[in-house]
Design a protein around this nucleic acid. Sequence first.
DNA 1: CACGTATATGAACATATGGGTATATTATGC
DNA 2: GCATAATATACCCATATGTTCATATACGTG
Lengths: 114, 114
Amino acid sequence: MEAVFEILAEPNRRAILSLLASSQRSVGEIERQVRLPQPTVSKHLRVLREAGFVESRVDAQRRLYRLKPEPFQEIEAWLAPFRRFWSTHLDALERHLDRVDPPEPAKRKIRRKR
Amino acid sequence: MEAVFEILAEPNRRAILSLLASSQRSVGEIERQVRLPQPTVSKHLRVLREAGFVESRVDAQRRLYRLKPEPFQEIEAWLAPFRRFWSTHLDALERHLDRVDPPEPAKRKIRRKR
DNA sequence: CACGTATATGAACATATGGGTATATTATGC
DNA sequence: GCATAATATACCCATATGTTCATATACGTG
């Protein structure tokens, strides 16, 4: 199996996966949302399909693509040994995240999830 | 910043990170454990350092490398939207994981890894 | 069955990156 | 200050992979 992290290394593939996280989509829909030529999208979908990130269902001339959960769990599994580590550094972590993605200025706005 | 997933796409870098997950190490120690030529190790360490995955501390002529937590949390953050999704598929997931890494057969033989 | 739509595939190319060897740098101990 | 150890960098090369354009395949409709 092609390693999951190699698959995710490609920004357009991550974009496609993020799209599919909300709902399944046809190739044409994906193509329009990520603004890539159709062959490019099809090729990325092929990679994602062969790596088990997505599966496709035939709907007339369309193919509807949707996520499969397994590879995500593999990532989780790989991350597990590090989780112990970073949980002991939560303070530095929050400072870092505030730099990367500063929280709303404490009014009554909803605090952004991270 | 170079995207975290691109960094993790490299197997040797993942190996180095896994090593550092247990404790900090010098370049020479890493070199011996991952069985790569020293320049290769130094290059990967540079990439990891510039991406914020590790930091180095000077100890005489050695540099001790240790993990930094922030990039791991970025991965967590990226995964979050998908977590909702895969948690609704736990059954299929467990079946998959059993295929990838079967649980011990409860006897006393050790099942061969694949 | 001809045509349009939707998707997949093939070929050619450019680029990025990891590995290898040699060399530079920095620190230490004498 | 010199020899040695530990690590970093430069340069070159080979390979892998993403993009583009062209074309092929599959399905649906008249």
